[in-house]
Design a protein around this nucleic acid. Structure first.
Length: 646
RNA sequence: GCCAAUGUAGCUCAGGGGUAGAGCACUUCCUUGGUAAGGAAGAGGUCAUGGGUUCAAUUCCCAUCAUUGGCUCCA
């Protein structure tokens, strides 16, 4: 008998060789039906694989990541089986589970290409294979036998993968008529998959190497219930509806013109109003927290970036330097704000008492992103960072981190991002040679980041070896209304620039010391953040932020004068809006302004004019009834107050 | 930068070897209204750009540019 410890600490005894499926069955038949894979002492097993020794186990269903992984991994094999049966002679690359579904990289036989027209037949075949409920079996074979098998199939991608594996046993998984090289784990049988569908096609280089052959990547998704697939497809539709490029056009926020240049956003008046409001609000918060605003030019002498090291590292792939009539003189479009800020720092002498120096700028930078990488406002060639640099003493790093974390938490909360994750990137403990800065400073900074995160209530994921060469960092990822993750804020420690620019301050010992520099941004860039905010809110911005809080709708032009009077009064309460005095009926005005996502519509006619009231309509809720101007102002102000209080 | 698809009116899109269509938006007129589209008339396009094939190209072919979906890269 062996002892199996469940996640809750309870211990059950089974005969040696018991499988995950049998354990699940012994706990509950319902669980046995839903369980997909099992973790045995931190290794993930198939349910049919026997367990020979005492172990800690955890059973995985579709609702945890490990369960999904096995589910989608098996789905990828089904996709491959379907394609092989429909297009014999197809060669297969890799077919992993990904965050949302799975893909398989394939190479179709000569002269054959896959198009969206083939999706229906693939879907049909995949569903058929699932309904056959074929058992999935795992087989250990030798490397030589594995090579022989895939050579006989002519599958040179698989043989390449196998030949790079270590000697020893190799596992193959078979379901129905399809056998694939795979580490596993997989579902016990294909019947668990009740809904499966191809989603899209893309080209992908074999092993991500552009000098190698481009394969066809087929993306798909699958679920244990048909209804879940339907919901997923609805979510994809919803994501399309929320696409910031679409809403940006509808709400006239920004525009791209090929005549100006790709990746260069033109901010329209409404978008500018939104962005300016974000900037001025954040500036206010920065001032409260001891930051000082600075402004620096859009270009800088090439020598500056040579000193900072950016030119050497990125100059070739960047916008090329601008020549001047002077011999040998060149300027670069600013790719980073930090060298400029460093020069501001260097403009005077510092005592230890002057630190920390918190310097912030909404600084526009230019980076030559590759053509294919440009995407709406999220990937552009000119963008404005909400950048800040904090020059501090080593003993201040932790406190400064805490202050920045507090600010980031406040900003996220105020904008409705309640769900976010954080990640600390530390250096690779096995190889210190690739990092600049002393061991002592790194150790201190890494400790400071971890303590600060913990004291501020973050639960960061810690990634060792992910730090940049110049210092460790803390990144923030927010989850939007559709559950998608966006990387926004980041705080980075930098030992590199202080060294390259020879920054110093005078310590209590009357000696010069090198300050530590912290880079930090909250929004990342204004462009990207506005895009995320649009998709998160579907264009229904928080009341305090939205460019137009109210639109006044006179019933007919007889009441335009009353509307003008009301608008003036509302302005006294800092409520912003405009009058829709088009020659249209009230229903039309309501419809058009609802579509523009105006939070409050005020209907003004004879009744209202006589009683000095407003008929208030809230976006998405409809008629709230009549109110006095004072009452309405209170409604608005309360809603704004609540936004910042909860 | 690579692969694929796409590019027709301000927007969303239909069409198709014989000089171009719809809806919305726009302009003018009528209508002066009560909570998600009032009516009529009008104007608007070098069918992305440049070549080629053809009696004829917006349509077919090639190139370029841009957009979209991926890949690669990202200070």
């Amino acid at each position: 008998m062996i002892k199996i410890t469940l996640p809750d600490g309870s211990i059950r005894e089974y005969a040696s060789g018991v499988t995950g499926a049998e354990i699940a069955e012994s706990i509950s038949p319902r669980l046995a039906k839903e369980v997909l894979s099992i973790t045995v002492n931190s290794e993930i097993y198939d349910l049919s694989r026997s367990i020979e020794t005492d172990a800690h186990i955890k059973l995985h269903k579709f609702d945890d990541d490990e369960g999904k992984h096995a589910f989608w991994h098996t789905s990828a094999h089904i996709l491959a089986e379907a394609i092989e049966s429909l297009f014999p002679g197809t060669k297969f690359g890799i077919g992993p589970a990904i965050e949302n579904g799975f893909y398989y990289d394939i190479e179709l036989p000569e002269g054959r290409a896959l198009s969206e027209n083939d999706f229906a037949s693939i879907n049909k075949k995949m569903l058929e294979l699932c309904q056959q409920d074929n058992l999935i079996t795992r087989k250990d074979i030798t490397k030589a036998d594995a090579l022989k098998y895939f050579e006989s199939k002519g599958d040179n991608y698989k043989t390449e993968l196998i030949s790079e594996l270590e000697d020893g046993t190799i596992t193959l998984y078979t379901q129905g008529n399809f056998t694939d090289l795979c580490r596993g784990p997989h579902l016990p049988s294909t019947g668990h998959i009740k809904a499966i569908q191809v989603l899209s096609l893309a080209g992908a280089y074999w092993r991500g190497d552009e000098s190698r052959k481009q394969l066809t990547r087929v993306y798909g998704i699958s679920f244990p219930k048909q209804k879940m697939l339907e919901e997923y497809l609805v979510m994809l539709e919803e994501a399309k509806k929320r696409d910031h490029r679409k809403i940006g056009k509808e709400l006239e926020l920004f525009h791209f013109s090929p005549k100006v240049g790709m990746g260069l956003a033109l901010w329209l008046p409404q978008g500018t109003a939104l962005r300016d409001r974000l900037e001025s609000w954040l500036t206010g918060e920065l001032n409260k927290r001891g930051y000082e605003m600075v402004k620096t030019p859009h270009i800088g002498n090439v020598e500056l970036y040579k000193t900072s090291g950016h030119f050497e590292k990125y100059g070739k792939d960047s916008f090329q330097p601008i020549q001047t009539p002077a011999e040998g003189e060149a300027f670069m479009l600013k790719p980073m704000n930090c060298p400029h800020h460093v020069e501001i720092f260097k403009s005077k002498q510092y005592s230890y008492r002057d630190l920390p120096y918190r310097m912030a700028e909404f600084g526009t930078v230019y980076r030559y992103e590759q053509h294919g990488e440009l995407h709406g406002l999220t990937r552009v060639r000119s963008f404005t960072q909400d950048d800040a640099h904090i020059f501090c003493r080593p003993d201040q790093v932790k406190e400064e981190f805490k202050k920045i974390i507090e600010l980031i938490q406040y900003v996220f909360k105020s904008l409705g991002f309640t769900d976010y994750r954080s990640q600390i990137s530390l250096r690779d403990p096995d190889d210190n040679s690739k990092y600049i800065g002393t061991d002592e400073n790194w150790a201190k900074a890494e400790q400071a980041i971890q303590e600060a995160s913990e004291e501020m209530g973050l639960k960061p994921v810690i990634e060792t070896g992910e730090a940049a060469f110049y210092g460790p960092k803390l990144d923030f990822m927010v989850k939007d209304a559709l559950g998608r993750m966006w990387q926004l804020g980041t705080i980075q420690v930098d030992y590199n620039l202080p060294e390259r620019f020879n920054l110093e301050y005078k310590g209590t010992d009357n000696q010069m010391h090198q300050p530590i520099m912290l880079h930090r941004t909250i929004f990342g860039s204004m462009e990207r953040f506005v895009a995320v905010l649009i998709e998160h809110t579907a264009g229904k911005f928080p009341l305090w932020l939205t460019p137009q809080q109210v639109v006044l709708l006179p019933i007919s032009e007889k009441y335009n004068d009353y509307a003008k009077k009301v608008l003036d009064l509302l302005k006294n309460y800092d409520i912003r809006g405009q009058i829709d005095d088009r020659n249209e009926k009230i229903g039309r005005k309501i419809r058009d302004n609802e579509l523009k996502r105006i939070p409050y519509l005020l209907v003004l006619g004879e009744k209202e004019a006589e009683t000095e009231t407003l008929s208030v309509r809230k976006q998405g809720q409809g008629d709230l009834g009549a109110m006095s101007i004072e009452e309405f102002a209170a409604v608005i102000n309360n809603e704004i107050k609540e936004n910042f209080n909860n």
